[in-house]
Design a protein around this nucleic acid. Structure first.
Length: 564
RNA sequence: GGCCCCAUCGUCUAGUCUGGUCCAGGACACCAGGUUUUCAUCCUGGUAACGCGGGUUCGAAUCCCGCUGGGGUCACCA
């Protein structure tokens, strides 16, 4: 029994899409479950679109989710662990550094007549393709290069003539044994002699994948269903090269709730809508020129950079849909929550809880101990952010207050400078119990304490709250607020406990009850009817600020009443 | 369009392989009621699905065929 080896092989052309994150998670879990190894490989053979920054981002996202890789690019986690490395000497793990290896195997194939150089230009091929489309025929390469005698082909290639290398596909059908879908057979007429080495000397995906999986000892390949039709090509390549075929499993894809493909384009879509709703003609931010902005707005297919989009949405107060793992990190989700939710999209533990309900809340440790092919479903799923949010709320509530405070501070130090400027880590610890209760994600903490981040004269009053609490019922609320002012002024020291005691004492002595006393104050100082417990809310602001806000509120409501 | 894959509540799904225990179970959402000084949380209850048509069988969500619908793929991208 050979050791299980799985891999995740992202292409560093952008951020880690949640679909990719799920693929990585499953491959990781499968390796852990079987005590095997998990390899991370960077597929950067498209030199034009790949970048080191993207690679680093992907590594960071994977590590954030709790995925560790045994072999692959080295990475140091926040808590100081080193991931990756090359203990078995099968690296390097960036395909762009493995060209000699590919060429060695490529040469074997060419010498055996199983692959051959071809000299048509991209333009010539494109013309033939268009011709086929016009005639409503499927396009396949016509093997014209095979008309050139083999010695001559080889000689021209060795003389340095610009060429590609094509795989000579066999004439028989190929059956793929898929652990998820069962046997899938595809006939030879479906495949032409596809390109395995590009004009620039880099292998194409198909060739690099097959060589690397074999050389790295990969035994199981779990990937998205979009690769299903590629698999017969890979099997053909494996046979030609004399490699074994790993066990395959193809997973259903993840879609948007409306059934469309979940892609970065959704962000452009949302941003364009926000711009139109705002009636903007000119770019509201400096990072994009007017011409580019107009072109982008007009063209449905045109996309902007991630940062530009965020800036744009931010300036309009619009939300961009979360698509990539980093979006969910920024949105304040916990890694375990995302991993749990993602795992459930396409996999099911088929296990009951003690109360007889289906098990669906589990952590990555559980996944590492129980993940199997049998639990993978065949049906594509839609990404339901509402359910993810419900999971997140549960997980946040289950956090220890201290842990929450730490996570909140860590999150804010990366994503919300205003918050960490206003509150120290100690402040956040004090606030944690009250804030946590009202959070569905870590980011929500911001809105709970948002009132403390704006100036006393900049509080926006929620009209509904003002009406309900202060105006309704002959403005008794407003009167109560005025009566309370001297009492608040006399509180000393101005701590949560003292404030709480003073306010509830006042509620009792006046016979008004807590609701009639606390709510007017809350609305006056926060502008809304929702905030942490009153004592904390006031203590955070400090006495001067509280009094200023009460005065401003009273003045504003009276002015408003005078108008009517 | 060719080829390939798929089909249970609005959504994620259990049940399908090994037909009967399923007038189909769970979760999220939704609706109603309750707890709560507000909001959120929490508790209780409820609405809601086997795509359609043929078979096979005493009996089909489960097996077979067809249809319909959805998706994937047809690059010198991965």
């Amino acid at each position: 029994m050979t050791e299980v080896v799985t891999r995740f092989a992202p292409s560093p052309t952008g951020r880690l899409h949640v679909g990719g994150a799920r693929t990585a998670l499953f491959n990781w879990a499968f390796a852990r479950r079987h005590g095997g190894k998990f390899v991370l490989r960077i597929e950067d053979t498209d030199r034009r679109r790949s970048s080191d920054a993207a690679t680093r981002g992907i590594l960071r996202s994977l590590a954030w989710m709790g995925i560790d890789w045994d072999q692959g690019p080295e990475f140091t986690t926040d808590d100081g662990r080193t991931l990756g490395g090359d203990p078995n000497s099968v690296g390097p793990f960036e395909q762009s550094k493995r060209i000699d290896l590919y060429n060695e195997h490529m040469r074997r194939l060419i010498d055996a007549g199983l692959a051959y150089p071809a000299f048509e230009t991209p333009e010539e091929l494109e013309a033939k393709r268009q011709e086929a489309i016009a005639a409503k025929r499927g396009y396949q390469y016509d093997r014209a290069a095979l008309g050139i005698p083999m010695p001559e082909r080889i000689a021209r290639m060795e003389a340095g003539e610009s060429h590609v290398v094509r795989m000579r596909m066999p004439e028989e059908p190929i059956t793929v044994h898929d652990e998820v879908l069962g046997d899938v057979t595809v006939g030879p007429e479906e495949f032409d002699d596809f390109i395995i080495r590009k004009r620039d000397g880099f292998p194409t995906y198909h060739f690099a994948v097959v060589v690397d999986d074999a050389l790295m000892g990969v035994t199981h390949v779990l990937r998205g269903q979009e690769h299903l039709i590629n698999t017969p090509r890979h099997v053909a390549l494996q046979r030609a090269l004399g490699f074994g075929t790993p066990t395959y499993g193809h997973m259903p894809l993840i879609f948007n709730p409306d059934g469309s493909k979940m892609s970065k384009r959704d962000k452009d879509k949302a941003a364009k809508k926000a711009v139109r709703d705002a009636g903007l003609q000119e770019p509201p931010v400096g990072s994009i020129g007017a011409d580019e902005f107009a072109a982008w707005l007009k063209d449905k297919t045109r996309q902007l950079g991630t940062d530009t989009l965020s800036e744009l949405a931010g300036s309009l107060g619009a939300e961009l849909p979360e698509i990539d793992t980093e979006d969910f990190i920024e949105a304040g989700y916990l890694p375990g929550t995302l991993a749990n939710f993602l795992a459930l999209l396409g996999w099911n533990p088929k296990t009951k809880n003690d109360d007889g309900t289906d098990l669906e809340r589990f952590d990555t440790d559980y996944l590492a101990g129980n993940f199997d092919f049998a639990g993978i479903g065949k049906t594509p799923s839609k990404f339901d952010r509402t359910k993810l949010l419900a999971f997140s709320a549960d997980d946040v509530q289950a956090m220890d207050d201290g842990v929450f405070a730490e996570a909140w501070h860590a999150w804010a130090s990366v994503f919300d400078a205003a918050l960490t400027e206003r509150f120290s880590a100690a402040d956040m610890r004090m606030l944690a119990p009250a804030v946590k209760q009202r959070c569905k994600t870590i980011r929500d903490g911001r809105s709970v304490v948002g009132f403390a981040l704006v100036g006393d004269d900049a509080i926006a009053f929620d009209p509904k709250a003002v009406h309900k609490v202060l105006i309704k019922g002959e403005r008794k609320g407003l009167q109560a607020l005025k009566d309370l002012r001297p009492m608040i002024e006399s509180i000393d020291p101005f701590t949560p406990e003292q404030v709480e005691a003073a306010v509830s004492g006042h509620a009792e002595s006046t016979g008004l009850g807590m609701g009639k006393v606390a709510q007017p104050i809350r609305v006056a100082v926060t502008g809304t009817s929702v905030s942490p417990p009153l004592g904390q809310t006031l203590a955070i602001l400090g006495k001067d600020s509280v009094l200023a806000r009460i005065d401003r509120c009273v003045a504003s409501v009276e002015a408003q009443a005078a108008e009517v």
